[in-house]
Amino acid sequence: MKHYNRFRFITLLLAFLLILIIPFLHRYFDFQFIQGWYQSLGIGKFWFVSPLEGLESILVSRQIYVPVLIGMLPAVLIALFLGRVFCAWICPISFLSELIDRVICRKKKKRELLRLPRQVFWFALLGELVLTMIIGAPLFVFLSPPGLVGREMMLAVMFHTLALEGVVIVVVLLLHLLSNRFFCRYLCPLGALLAFIGARRRLKVELQAGEEQKCLHCGLCARSCPLGLDPEKGETASMYCWNCGACIDACPQDVLKFRFSDQ
């Protein structure tokens, strides 16, 4: 049962196509039922709001608007139970990175040219929130690439132009070539927020109980991890793991499994 990589890529592709098709529907078919992208996705009368964007909006304006909270709720609940699954399974930057992996860097070489301490992740989030409050204007506009991808695609389809801040996407993807998922690992504020919410998540990748003997210590799982975690040492239980399942696919002995704990 090793299909998580393919399944994940299909999910990412569908999620990417969704936000690519929405502007076309608006521009050429006047179809208003779904709007937006992963900053705020509206389906009919209901809308999702990305937790980071909603949080910054509330922090900066110091006003609470109930529909924002309701919109943030599904994303927060998913993060609470499943962890950072948005990053691995939906985020358009993830899609582009995996596309690069599949098209350009087909060799399974581990790219780790630039490493930082993992704690940078939290400082990035905290720094961003503090700076946002100092400046008084939200910074995710430039620093949350999942939103930028959607914005660029919408502008390209609706107005046939691109916004300058799209450079950030290019930088993020270049960093990905330098070191696997560098931005996602160390700098993404949305990822950090979701990881923080999912600190005590239910869904985790674990060595199957009673089958530790089967592990060959081959290190393939650690090699396959896009975030540079080592499942063998139990790092998948840490806050950083985003439950992509790449290590499960890589394990030749089928020792690693997703486990949904009850409490």
Binding site: P23, Q32, G36, V49, F140, M154
Partner: peptide
Amino acid sequence: FAAKCIRCGRCVEA
């Protein structure tokens, strides 16, 4: 305005 708006672009699309 700049503080509250989350730049989701849905007004532009709509």
